[in-house]
């Protein structure tokens, strides 16, 4: 079980939205983690500097939250490490061919009512729910 956190999740979601709006306002870019990461892999994109800066900000953010507030950031994973790694490779291949992930399609693309992003989001949400159902309720796994 995890605690239902509607207020904190809504606040976090609003901040994610704010970052998407600001990246468009400043850099004219979609705040999609897949696209930002892909440009940092060889052959590295010519505009890699802002991508690296965005990434660095995202990585230090949790420690900044922890040091500036007494808010604990819950983290736990029921998934055995080999499955985390298998899941990682699958996610990497999927988001590359699918041209985006939760941030790019689910937030930025859905907000623009892009038909591709709506189709992508409906698809990955459905297969994620189906996968968890199979693992937990049919196979009795994690």
């Amino acid at each position: 079980m995890t605690e239902f956190t509607p207020v904190l999740s809504l606040l976090g979601g609003a901040l994610i939205g704010l970052s998407a709006v600001l990246l468009m306002a400043f850099h004219g870019r979609i705040a999609g983690m897949t696209g930002i990461l892909t440009g940092l892999l060889p052959p590295v994109a010519s505009d890699w500097v802002w991508r690296a800066a965005f990434l660095a900000g995202a990585i230090v953010a949790p420690s900044l939250v922890l040091s500036l507030s007494d808010h604990a950031i819950a983290f736990s994973s029921p998934v055995p490490l080999p499955w985390v790694i298998i899941g990682g490779v699958i996610v990497g291949g999927g988001v590359y061919f699918g041209s985006g992930c939760t941030s790019g399609h689910g937030v930025c693309g859905m907000a623009r009512l892009s038909p591709r992003s709506i189709a992508a989001t409906a698809t990955f949400m459905a297969t994620a729910i189906a996968t968890v159902f199979v693992i937990r309720h049919l196979l009795g796994g994690f």
């Binding site: 994610i16 953010a61 736990s76």
Partner: peptide, 22 residues
């Protein structure tokens, strides 16, 4: 500015629970 925007993104993710696999 990209760093600041990344910081806001990461803070939102951390507070929201999206970084917590469970």
């Amino acid at each position: 500015l990209a760093g600041v925007v990344g910081l806001i993104f990461g803070t939102g993710i951390a507070l929201s629970g999206m970084a917590n696999p469970a």
